[in-house]
Design a protein around this nucleic acid. Sequence first.
DNA 1: CTTGACCTTGGTGTTTACTCTAAGGTTTAT
DNA 2: ATAAACCTTAGAGTAAACACCAAGGTCAAG
Lengths: 152, 152
Amino acid sequence: MLVLTAQMETIMYKIGELSKVLSVSTDTLRYYEKNGLLKPSGRSESGYRLYNDNDLRCLQFIVRAKSIGFSLNEIKELLSINLEKQDHSCGEVKSLTDLKLAQVEAKIMELTRFKDSLRLLSDACCGGEEAAIHCSILSALENVDDSFNRVN
Amino acid sequence: MLVLTAQMETIMYKIGELSKVLSVSTDTLRYYEKNGLLKPSGRSESGYRLYNDNDLRCLQFIVRAKSIGFSLNEIKELLSINLEKQDHSCGEVKSLTDLKLAQVEAKIMELTRFKDSLRLLSDACCGGEEAAIHCSILSALENVDDSFNRVN
DNA sequence: CTTGACCTTGGTGTTTACTCTAAGGTTTAT
DNA sequence: ATAAACCTTAGAGTAAACACCAAGGTCAAG
């Protein structure tokens, strides 16, 4: 399964092997390559992608960055900074993080407004089996002069 | 601007007029029509869409439902229930609302995890102008055995 | 009568992150 | 020798909610 290079030093993974190690589909790995996030360090004679340990660490970086909410484009930026650390400042990295943080916080606020409105609607509704002719939720959506609309 | 029907009762709006009343673009109105959310009640001789007061109220319904986080597909369902209130129960409407509420809350929780991680990273980073060689954010993304990873 | 604002249709493009397909070549195990 | 499992490429499809475009018809004002 594992191919050793001539130097007998670096462990190389075929795409399916790397896929299993970090639970990332082979389709996704090819997608990352096409989008400049992770290029395998080599190819076998028959054209198979070969990933080394460094590639594996890079994929870990991607997976972790994804797990804290960075988009692939943002991760691409982080990766290129990481590759040339000496040419970039700490402040640059922190800026990216803080920008993302602000976006996430804004989204949370929007969703919280949704949540509060939905909660109000739900709590006001009897939820019974009778016909929805007098359903308070539908009325709230239909009529302007309603408690739901006053709250917002 | 306003066209009166033969009955001299109903106010009809052309698409651009309705667009202005509720600040919804004409493209969006045509999109809603194509997707079965809002069909204008008539057409002029030259083929222009004509919306009446009922259509206006329907569009208000859509706009309000959107403002509390319902997707267009969910709104379509709500609209069809609203059209045939007697055939649907209050519980049905409340179920839709509660399902949406649960989805919104789940999303908020996910984003809150993102936020907490990002906050940790940001607070740990000096953000200075020096090179990012020892940047704590990049290290956290690179190495497993890090405070950031322990927290998660 | 012409200009400009408006309307029509049908179609493409945007964003994000994949997922799936087809048609075929390679490797490994039996 | 052959089947199973793996790999290759290019390209299409998915969701959501529109935005934008071209080519052309319509309508009101000056």
